[in-house]
């Protein structure tokens, strides 16, 4: 009786593997922390930022606070890098390869499991953030500058961003099995390299298709893009639509995952 292993079994194995580690606790805390961060920002009020920004009673004020939550999406990306790296680190890769010799199925299962985990992370983060935002507005006695439906839509987009970023993390982590190196490269890219790239004339036109631009499209947070446009003179590059932004980001994750599958195929597990 040779029933092939069902994809569901592989995904459920990866979920169980993840759920039984401390990452579940730390991930939940990080998600709650990210959401809480929004509460702190809202409590301080954008009008007290340096430089001061429009307050919560205005549409840009609410967008800034939610956009900063979107910037926290790199945290689940970092958590995602551990998916493959921990198999190298704890030397479970051999056993995993024996049970699932086709490496692309193994990576696909991890991507699926982490998509679920990343979405859970995002939902926790935006639920806490949404509650904090509403609570702060009530405490301060101001009405949020955006309609509730718009706020909920933005929160949902941020949750999706976090799930997509988790996948980018898994894929990059598969490509660069050294956990520290993968995290450093992701962090460096989002905080320095992309911004530096944009200073090169012409590259700005590509911005909507770069990870940062696609993220801005997805989260609807264009503060960085606008600031950049201001500094460099030209007008802001027009961003993609939110679904297209998500697709572009997923495209990066898929490219990284494909390279990660093709490269280790030629690599002996010793």
């Amino acid at each position: 009786m040779t029933v092939p292993i069902s994809p569901r079994a592989l995904v459920s194995a990866e979920l169980r593997r993840l759920a039984a580690t401390r990452l579940r606790l730390w991930g939940s805390l990080a998600a709650i922390g990210s959401g809480g961060f929004v509460g702190v920002l809202a409590l301080i009020g954008p009008e007290n930022f340096d430089p001061p920004l429009p307050g919560l009673e205005t549409a840009p004020g609410v967008r800034v606070v939610l956009g900063l939550l979107g910037l926290c999406a790199f945290v689940p990306a970092l958590l995602g890098t551990t998916a493959v790296a921990s198999e190298y680190r704890h030397r479970t890769l051999t056993t995993t390869a024996l049970f699932a010799p086709r490496r692309w199925t193994m990576l696909a299962a991890k991507l699926a499991a982490y998509a679920i985990a990343g979405l859970a992370y995002g939902l926790i983060a935006v639920t806490v953030a949404g509650a904090a935002l509403a609570g702060t507005a009530a405490v301060k006695g101001v009405a949020l500058g955006l309609p509730t439906a718009t706020v909920l839509a933005l929160l949902a987009r941020i949750a999706v961003t976090m799930a997509v970023y988790t996948l980018v993390g898994v894929a990059v982590g598969a490509l660069i099995p050294n956990q520290v190196a993968a995290a450093a490269i992701l962090g460096a890219y989002f905080y320095m390299i992309e911004t530096a790239l944009l200073l090169i004339p012409g590259v700005k036109e590509l911005y909507p298709y770069l990870p940062g631009g696609a993220t801005a499209a997805l989260t609807g947070f264009t503060y960085l893009a606008d600031a950049l446009a201001e500094q460099t003179g030209g007008g802001a590059a027009s961003l993609l639509s939110a679904p297209l932004g998500a697709t572009v980001l997923l495209g990066y994750a898929v490219v990284a995952a494909v390279i990660a599958v093709v490269v280790p195929l030629r690599r002996d597990i010793t």
Binding site: S6, A13, A20
Partner: peptide
Amino acid sequence: GVYARLGG
């Protein structure tokens, strides 16, 4: 448990 699931 993880590997029992992985192996089906």
